[in-house]
Design a protein around this nucleic acid. Structure first.
Lengths: 241, 241
DNA sequence: AGGTGTGAAGGATTTCACAGCC
DNA sequence: GGCTGTGAAATCCTTCACACCT
């Protein structure tokens, strides 16, 4: 058996994600979309929505919507649909965002500072509460949008993680540093990593990694656009992702 | 039949991507990973690699690697493995990155400027050649890393797209602007969109969208980390993505 | 021995279609 | 009439296992 306790992490998709009882990984991904759309309904004052409507707005079949939700319980009302408020609360509970997660960011380069300033996390249950960088030149720089906080040196990682009870970290460092930094983060108690470095991280089984490789995403676009160029026949639906 | 020619685009995953003859969408995603890893081998001076090795480095089975590649042709040599250089060339050809794509960026905010400065695109076949913004205050600002170029007003979109033969655009604008901007881009000839706005874009069938929603990615992490908290039994592989 | 390519088997996910409820 | 929840069927994707090559 070559079952290392240390194992690999790939990009974009859960290659070996521990899957809970019978819930398909894609269903969990769609849950986030449902939530996002439901929040649109709230600002539109819509109190209730059917699987058909929700599916149409998201490019998914109505049966898919119902199945996905049914994996987690019975949230709907026959003849009526789903109560928007209630469903939002249920999905947040499922995703674990019915509370606020303190998030740590490593890497105060261009991408890192953009992420630190990103307005979208608040209200979604995530708050970047600390920023670290290996580069002494960046340490001490104050963080816009985090009044009073400054970029900290890596030496302060462990105490900060413990003090602020941080479980999730965003990795926005150059590829060469990503694995060693990940190792330190994990040793300091981080259980989930959002990795922007274009490498495959190797992490223990108890740690989750979600990878965002921008070049990889553009490659997928390139592939699809190249296909559409001289197609056998044009599809009837939009490419999505 | 309610088959609108206009249809929806979702996040993360190809909900309705036109799929070519028998190639699973996940296989195409992995192609990008294979390519990335093969480039690592090149800098390590490795001339040849087996599906077993490549798979191990990426957290994928060897059979999966062989299957994925076999969808596109016969690239390997029994008893030897795959020639690294040759396979890189073949995959680039398949993904359409055996040439350089001119890419346009809309949105010169925090994220947009970070993307414009991102070093990783060059060498992957992508070059950001123009940056646009609706905000008059941002227009005219010069772009670091694109000497001589400045942020242009939306009015110059169409001529620039035509002049530079641009097919792919990155959307880094606020959610409210994303759909209208996408519409203009498409009307001006863009065929592929990398969308960072947290909304589902509706686009014609001939246009491809790849979506990157940062909050959504964190939600997936939140879900997995929450699971690992009080698990029935700890898995034996790392969560990946 | 070591390795690819691939049909066949096995699993996972999606879609169908319908009973039951409002 | 409209809508959910859900077994069953269909489809899609991954893994097995082996013929064949070097």
């Amino acid at each position: 058996m070559d079952t290392d306790p240390q194992l690999v992490s790939t990009t974009g998709d859960a290659a070996g994600t521990e899957r809970i009882v019978g819930v398909p990984t894609p269903a969990v991904r769609r849950l986030s979309l449902y939530l996002r759309q439901l929040e649109v309904y709230v600002s539109a004052g819509k109190a209730t929505v059917s699987s058909k409507q929700l599916g149409k707005d998201l490019g998914v079949t109505d049966a898919q919507v119902r199945k996905d939700l049914a994996y987690f319980g019975q949230f709907g009302h026959p003849g009526v649909g789903y109560r928007v408020d209630g469903l939002i609360a249920r999905i947040r509970r499922i995703l674990g965002t019915d509370r606020v997660w303190n998030v740590l960011l490593v890497g105060a380069g261009h991408l890192g500072t953009a992420l630190a300033a990103y307005r979208g996390f608040a209200g979604k249950g995530f708050q970047i509460v600390a920023v670290f960088d290996q580069d002494a030149a960046k340490v001490g720089v104050s963080i816009v949008s985090l009044p009073g906080r400054r970029v900290q040196p890596m030496s302060e990682l462990q105490p900060t993680i413990e003090e602020l009870d941080i479980r999730i970290a965003i990795l926005a460092v150059p590829a060469e540093h990503a694995q060693p930094v990940a190792d330190v983060l994990i040793a300091s108690g981080i259980r989930g990593l959002l990795n922007f470095a274009p490498i495959t991280l190797t992490v223990p089984a108890a740690v989750s990694v979600v990878a965002v490789d921008l070049s990889t995403q553009l490659e997928q676009l390139s592939y699809r656009v190249s296909l559409n160029r001289m197609p056998s026949r044009s599809g009837e639906r939009a490419a999505t992702s």
